[in-house]
Design a binder for these strands. Structure first.
Lengths: 211, 211
DNA sequence: CTGCAAAATTGCAACAAATGAAGAAAAGCG
DNA sequence: CGCTTTTCTTCATTTGTTGCAATTTTGCAG
């Protein structure tokens, strides 16, 4: 018999999804600042207080789906080949994340474009995104150090990851100056953007001394 | 006759300084979250409402002194020599900022250690710091592009700056895992920390492919 | 120094985010 | 069915933030 998760768990998950759906819809429709916690809770048919037992803050609900993307990168790093250099696995990890974004971005993950628009238009959300990015970099660095224990110390691993992610993130920002550009970005061919991001990777790999 | 700034301006500046002083003192003494706007305003002998006509938010008062550090970097970039490569001026700019931190950090700028401690202990402040960092990188990139118009396009300049700053920031974070370490960092010899940061610069310059 | 316009400050009301505490409702389980 | 544990709700409270109208202070012309 498939015991599976009990009713309690299932209900919890349903509420969680309802909150996320309500939040994304409202953010999209009215904007982030114009949507209150009370609105979101009402949209999911729970009390406002309950919202905070699912998400610690209004911003966090936008990042409910980011962990698996990071897991993807971890998996790539953990599967290093014996001939791989740190840069190889890192670039491969980065490529895997890009590819996933390209494949699923528009169709499956409604959160992605909404979040991206908020990141570029709402300061508080941008701050949270950057914080999570930094923490992700630290975890990536730890993983990279573990994969190459005698080639990279902890601090050097942080520098390596920081250089790569820094180049990509800052490039991304220079491509999107106005929030409207996020929509254009998801509407058309993602090729040109990905090409620019690949250039950023090259800059980090070859070193800024090469420019 | 030294016209100078009128009484109105001087008073405004005095109030501004009083607010900053009160805020730093209270943050240091009680902590950030434990200090309310009302406390800060009381410490500067103004109404709480007035606080917001000087600073748009509680976080911003911690960053009242950051603009001149950026100006230092700008100045270095603007004074590029005819033989300089982008990496030369960037590294020089970074060194100038480090040096200034080394010289003045403990003695003159009380804001620096306080802010740093808050950055590492208060999420909201960290978010704001990262946002400002990102915006600074964009401005640096624009300046770098202007200094090397035919060697770096706008996007590539962003990648270059991002790689360098990313390496340094992530290294910094990996050196300071707990907020208490900020105090150790400012208490002892800054040499070892600066050495690590220099290694981060080298990683960015030589490229992560070299590690 | 007097009066007036501009600017700064204030108090007050209001709203939203976040948190704590006590009790009601629901789910799991014997 | 009763009992226990978890979850949800209600209520109150604190704090950051903003708008508005009243008041005070400053700069300046006469």
């Amino acid at each position: 018999m498939t015991t599976g998760p009990g009713l309690r768990e299932r209900k919890k998950e349903r509420t969680r999804q309802a909150l996320i759906t309500a939040a994304l819809g409202l953010f999209e429709e009215r904007g982030y600042d114009e949507t209150t916690i009370a609105d979101i809770a009402a949209g999911a048919d729970v009390s406002a207080r309950t919202f905070f037992s699912y998400f610690p803050s209004k911003e966090e609900i936008l990042f409910a789906d980011t962990e698996d993307r990071l897991a993807l990168a971890f998996a790539v790093i953990d599967q290093r080949g014996p001939e791989d250099a740190p840069v190889d696995v890192l670039v491969r990890a980065m490529a895997a994340v890009f590819e996933r974004a390209e494949q699923f971005g528009q169709v499956f993950d409604r959160a992605v474009p909404v979040r991206l628009r908020m990141v570029f238009s709402v300061p508080a959300v941008q701050g949270m995104a950057l914080q999570r990015m930094l923490s992700a970099q630290q975890r990536l660095a730890a993983r990279l150090h573990a994969a190459f224990p005698d080639r990279l110390d902890r601090v050097e691993a942080a520098a390596v990851v920081g250089a790569l992610v820094g180049a990509v993130v800052n490039t991304m920002l220079s491509l999107v100056q106005a929030p409207e550009q996020v929509d254009e970005l998801f509407a058309g061919d993602p090729g040109p953007v990905l090409a620019q991001l690949r250039r950023a990777v090259e800059v980090a790999v070859a070193g800024i001394g090469a420019s």
